[in-house]
Computed example of a mutant assay.
Amino acid sequence: MPRVAFYAPMKPPTHPVPSGDRAFARALMAAITTGDTEINLVSTVQTHDSKGDPARQDILRAAADAEATRLINQFATEPPDLWVTYHNYYKAPDFIGHAVTSALGIPYVQIEASRAKKRLTGPWGAFATAAEAAIDAADMVFYLTANDLITLERHCPPRQRLINLKPFLPHDELPDAADPARNRPRMLTAGMMRHGDKLGSYQIIAETLACLNGIDWQLDIAGDGPARPEVERLMAPYGDQVQFLGQLDAEQMADAYNHAALFFWPGINEGFGMVYLEAQAAGVPVVAQDRPGVRDVLAPGTYPAPEDGPAALASQITRILKDAELCRTLGATARKSIARNHLIGSAHATFWSSVTPLLDRKL
């Protein structure tokens, strides 16, 4: 029975605060699991530093080093057969997996690792150096988007394999289909209310709403967080046309998709966005900007470029809300794309067909 060690330095799958990172870490553990595989979350130590604070980085590094020592001792006589690290990058480097696999000779796999050579100097310099070293040490890196592949391929060590693992939902089958045309003019947005890129997407949404002239519309917003007061101020001019649903669990989100005519999220600097997969799986058309990462999970179609601004997004929304047949067609196309490319079965097959040679080599 293969024994797989799993670690997520950015945010463990057991973290109490929901996010795309947590959701995808959980999905990965489910995809890796088989009837004859034992997968264990071996550490919940987080190394994430969002502000570039060297003093905090020293504290995080010390905690990670202590954890690595503990695990090396724990696994000295019976190491796992494979180590998998999810989301190693310059703000959350994998000190632990790199140290443990080097010490014990365990095959080392990373999923959604990203390189950022420009960060080797500056406030994240030490962390970026560690993240690069960990990627260099990996036997195999699964990349999720074409954007991540660019730098991974450019700096790939000769022995390392790069494998495309398409972002996926942790389900074998699609959920029941919504009827988005029947839900017009109700739109849905879902995103954590954080400062930075998330708030930037909310800013674009507010500007887009101002361009929706001559049509009826209603926007439901699912999500919460420290930037909620700013989001509420952005939406205040639209009164009760915008409703705040708060933070929703999986069942509540499924209900929200089932009552939406379209899903609207611009997607500034999204890795890919689990919400896009969820909305499309329900048969809800997506309005988003054509951005790296985001485009890897959107159904075939035309999406406005960021430089086209809010007016282009408003034009697309208007077309969908006015045309019931278009709304249904886009939703059906999205649903077929998810079924074909983004369910757990295909992820499971890709993972195990790729890592089995590593296990055979170890054994």
Rank of each mutant, 00 (worst) to 15 (best):
Y7Q: 10
K11R: 14
P12N: 15
H15V: 10
P16D: 02
R22Q: 04
F24V: 13
A25H: 11
R26Y: 01
L28T: 13
A30D: 14
T34I: 05
G35C: 03
T37N: 02
N40C: 06
T44K: 03
H48E: 08
H48W: 10
D49C: 11
G52W: 03
R56C: 12
R56E: 12
L60F: 11
D65P: 00
A68T: 00
N73W: 00
F75K: 06
E78K: 05
P79I: 00
P80K: 00
P80T: 01
W83K: 13
W83D: 14
K91S: 03
P93G: 05
H98W: 04
A99W: 01
T101Q: 12
S102R: 12
A103Y: 09
I106K: 07
P107D: 04
I111N: 09
E112R: 13
S114Y: 11
P123I: 10
P123Y: 08
G125V: 03
A126N: 02
F127K: 08
A128V: 01
T129S: 13
A130G: 12
A133N: 07
F142N: 07
F142P: 08
Y143A: 03
L149R: 09
L152Q: 06
H155P: 04
P158Y: 02
Q160S: 12
I163L: 09
L165T: 08
L165D: 11
P167K: 11
P170L: 08
D172N: 13
P175C: 03
A177R: 06
A178D: 13
R184L: 14
M187Q: 11
A190L: 14
R194P: 07
G196W: 03
D197A: 15
K198D: 13
I205G: 04
L212I: 10
I215P: 08
D216Y: 03
A222T: 10
G225P: 05
P226D: 11
E230R: 11
Y238G: 08
Q241N: 11
Q243T: 13
F244L: 15
A250D: 15
A250Q: 15
E251S: 13
D255P: 02
Y257P: 07
N258Y: 02
N258R: 13
N258P: 03
N269V: 09
G273T: 13
M274V: 15
M274E: 12
E278S: 09
A279V: 13
A279S: 15
Q280W: 10
A282Q: 06
V284F: 00
V284R: 01
D290L: 11
G293H: 06
T302F: 00
A312C: 03
L321W: 04
L321P: 11
K322F: 08
A324E: 14
L326W: 01
L326D: 07
G331M: 01
G331R: 05
R335H: 08
I338H: 05
I344F: 05
S346H: 12
W352G: 10
S353A: 15
S354F: 00
S354K: 00
V355P: 00
L359E: 10
R361D: 11
